[in-house]
């Protein structure tokens, strides 16, 4: 009788232990940070259909600033998804794969978004086709200090 009680006790203890561990693991996995892209970003790389153009065209003045209030501004102009400032929104705050840019008075444009860390620095990578849809441009930005 005594041994049966011990067996039941240990079974219950094991069950509770496993269940409690499961919750911990699940909680860690879903704890993805919200992506913060606020700040001013400058271009470090630009490709057209896979061909690097950064050394061939002056990109030094083109910058995009994402503000905490959900608006963005552009410095200088270039072949880009939008020509002027407006509002922005990531499609998902934790797992974004696109950013919607809505230029003032214009329709919203969805741009493919990636947020990689390259050589220790966080980058924003935007893929878009401002001209013919067959021509794809990838802008890579780093945050300006």
């Amino acid at each position: 009788m005594k041994s049966r009680i011990f067996i039941i006790f240990y079974l219950l203890l094991t069950t509770f232990t496993i269940l409690s561990c499961k919750d911990e693991v699940a909680a860690v996995i879903t704890d993805e940070s919200v992506k913060d892209i606020t700040g001013t970003w400058k271009v470090v790389s630009l490709t057209r259909n896979g061909e690097e153009l950064a050394q061939r065209i002056d990109l030094s003045k083109f910058k995009i600033t994402f503000k905490p209030d959900g608006t963005y501004t552009l410095q200088d102009k270039l072949a880009f998804a939008v020509a002027g400032g407006g509002s922005y929104k990531l499609n998902d705050p934790q797992y974004p794969y696109s950013v919607v840019l809505t230029e003032q008075g214009k329709t919203a444009k969805s741009v493919k978004f990636q947020f990689p860390v390259i050589e220790g620095k966080r980058q924003i990578s935007l893929t878009l086709s401002p001209g013919c849809t067959g021509n794809t441009y990838q802008y890579n930005f780093v945050k300006e200090n």
Partner: peptide, 10 residues
């Protein structure tokens, strides 16, 4: 180039 392009391409 690109041979197919618009005025908003590079």
């Amino acid at each position: 180039e690109p041979i197919k392009s618009l005025d908003n391409d590079i």
